[in-house]
Every structure is written in C-alpha cells, then in structure tokens.
C-alpha cells in the first residue's frame, strides 16, 4: 500500500454535487447508476444471444460446420488478452483507491494496450473471413458447405463480435478519458467514481466475451 499523498491534496477539485448530502451518497448513486446501465447492456446483447440459441437449434449442422471456420487460436488469444486487461483495470481501480497515481496511470495504459491488441487480432480475423467470403446473408459466397444455412451463423457471428468490438472501441475512449484525468491528479481515495464506473463497464465487455468465445468458437 502506498498511501503517500497528504490528505489536503487528495482530489483538490472534487466537491460533493449540490444535490447530494455526502460524498458517500454521491458515490453510491453513481455506482447504482452504472449497475443499472450494465443491465441494459446485458439485455442489449441478450437479443443476439437469443437469436444465437434459436438458430443454433434450428440449423445445428450449419452452425457446427461454420464454426470450424473460426480461428480457435485467435479467439483464445483474445480471451487471454481481455482477461488480462480486466485484471489491469481492476488493479487501476485499486491503485486509485490507495492514492497511487503513478500505478493508476500505468495500469490504465496497459489496459488500453490490451484493448488495441484485441482489436488487431479481431481485424486479422475479419480480414480472413471477408477474404474467404464467410459473410452474413446475401454476401455469403464461400463454397464447399454441405449444410444449408452457414450464412445465418455468420450473420450472428458478425453482429455479436461487431457490437462487442464497438464496445471495446468505446471502452478505449472511456479509459483514455479517465487516464488523462488520473494524470491530472483528479482521483484519490476520496473520489474515484469515474475510474470505478469505467472499470465496471470494461469488466462487462470482458464478461460478454467470456460467453461469446465458447459459444461461437468452441461449440458452434
């Protein structure tokens, strides 16, 4: 633990907003708001999971055949990258809690690098799929499939991973924002709600991938 800074210098710009009585009430409200937001995220992705389960049950052979065209290794690498970035994000929150500005900034930078790494791997995966014509709906042009609806699998695959990728990109922007604020010295044990909030969002992005990886890459 490295609680080094003096109490007077912690988060000098922070003050409790006028409509809250205490910092604690403000922090709790922010966190509850984030959790409710995460509920909407889960149900948003839920629609795609629903489509996945239905079409998998209808077109089981197509899904099994199509999922062999996904790159298990790249998927597994991305899983590890995201889990590691979740760890560094959690550690960044912890560092903010103990007033360690340098470590907060450091862990956030690692998190952003992981996010970029994830996107690079995703880029190569997409490039490969597009090259092979493994695309949704009318754009599906790959030859040699023995089952009738591989295009549906790739529709689900691209919608799920695409929207997840969009969340990764938004996450990069959010982490960059708190990175700059952390650099400025905004956060401390007194006030770190934005770090915590972005952290919760980032963990949810990880959570969604934890389901996407086995469903799409492993069991088809």
């Amino acid at each position: 633990m490295s609680a080094s800074a003096n109490d007077e210098k912690l988060s000098p710009d922070f003050h409790v907003a006028h409509h809250f009585d205490t910092a604690d009430q403000q922090f709790d409200s922010a966190r509850m708001g984030i959790w409710l937001f995460l509920v909407t995220e889960i149900l948003f992705f839920g629609g795609l999971f629903c489509a996945f389960f239905i079409y998998r049950s209808w077109y089981f052979s197509s899904f099994v055949e199509a999922h062999h065209h996904l790159d298990k290794v790249m998927g597994a690498v991305n899983t590890c990258v995201l889990i590691f970035s979740s760890l560094t994000m959690a550690l960044a929150v912890r560092s903010a809690q103990v007033n360690d500005k340098a470590k907060t900034v450091g862990f956030l930078i690692v998190t952003i690098l992981c996010a970029f790494g994830f996107l690079v791997v995703k880029y190569f995966e997409y490039q490969h799929k597009i090259h092979d014509g493994l695309l949704p709906g009318v754009h599906f042009t790959a030859q040699g499939f023995s089952s009738p609806h591989p295009g549906t699998f790739f529709a689900v695959y691209f919608m799920m991973t695409g929207i997840h990728g969009l969340h990764v990109i938004i996450g990069i922007g959010l982490i960059l924002w708190i990175l700059l604020r952390a650099q400025r010295g905004d956060f401390s044990a007194r006030y770190y709600a934005p770090v915590e909030g972005v952290g919760l969002y980032w963990h949810l992005v990880d959570l969604v991938w934890i389901y996407l990886f086995p469903l799409l890459y492993l069991v088809g």
Partner: peptide, 27 residues
Amino acid sequence: PVLAITLLLLLFEKAFQIGIFDPKLGG
C-alpha cells in the same frame, strides 16, 4: 435495450441483407 437490438438488426437487415429476419436466407 431489446428494442435497441431489434432496431439495430432491422437496420442491418435492410441495409446489408444479413438474413436474420429473411426466410429466403434462413431467417
């Protein structure tokens, strides 16, 4: 949020014909 994903899928269906809701493509 479910309305959001519905409309997003509809947008993609309309713009790119991804076939989620199109019976000709298995939807």
